[in-house]
Write a protein that binds this DNA or RNA. Sequence first.
DNA 1: TAATAATTGACTAAAACAGTAGGTTATTAT
DNA 2: ATAATAACCTACTGTTTTAGTCAATTATTA
Lengths: 156, 156
Amino acid sequence: MRLTTKGRFAVTAMLDIALYEADKPVTLAGISERQSISLSYLEQLFSRLRKQGLVSSVRGPGGGYRIARAHQEISVSDIITAVDEQIDATQCGGNENCHDEGRCMTHELWASLNSKILDYLSGVSLADMVEMQRKKGAGTVVFAPRKCGSEATIAA
Amino acid sequence: MRLTTKGRFAVTAMLDIALYEADKPVTLAGISERQSISLSYLEQLFSRLRKQGLVSSVRGPGGGYRIARAHQEISVSDIITAVDEQIDATQCGGNENCHDEGRCMTHELWASLNSKILDYLSGVSLADMVEMQRKKGAGTVVFAPRKCGSEATIAA
DNA sequence: TAATAATTGACTAAAACAGTAGGTTATTAT
DNA sequence: ATAATAACCTACTGTTTTAGTCAATTATTA
């Protein structure tokens, strides 16, 4: 997997829906405004999130997006892998430089790091994040995702 | 911190020196050949590694690079942070969007992930990697770092 | 039927990654 | 002394990814 601001945007947007979704689905325009993420960029992200079955869409007036599964059933790693297509599924490329025996020297190190990251992110569900957010913002919740947090770009 | 192939190259190169350094320092030309990393690219990486005090250099014929500290005293995270200058030291930019209270919604998530990654990588020393490598390649050790392992790009 | 809002596709500026090219300086061996 | 070695330094390049824009189409509801 791979962790960039793209993945962060997606997680933030999903959390936004989880918090605001009630009777009505949540519009991208609303998410865009609250989270300061470009509408067109959200559209691209949600195209993927929908194809991966993480959200369902309703067209027309009063339409928008809903979380498609139970909040406990969606992990942060689900969201990230949905928007950040991992190109490098073939571990060592399949051929070229990495012999089946021998591998590259640091292979085990990165493999092990990757599994640690994945373990952590798949252990955090949308439900966890909602709860965390509810606890935190007792009064008015301030949303300001942009440029927040340190730059992260993990590829596992 | 941020994890890319740049960091992987640096770790691979440092491990190469640790394995080959004996009476003589190790030349970049040698590393370049063994690890299939471009010489000029290595020069760039080693400029940083030297400035961070991870390696020491000897000029002229018979010169090259040595590991500057005890192998146990150098962690993988040391190497990576040396070559991948983290721009985003100011956590939330210092101003703009991220209020001191409120922060961005997913702030804690990434902060926590980052510390997990850092914990792991700072727990693995060059000495650990040397030992691992010696155990593995009992006979002939095959080096083939290029494109090996899954693409990784973590920014913490 | 008009407004809403998802859906799609192509296109763009900026940054980072990985690498190249060409030169300068210090040290050693001849 | 001088030639070879190898670190050191600066600037430049092509490709990919990131983040975003623009413009159009389709489905739904008031």
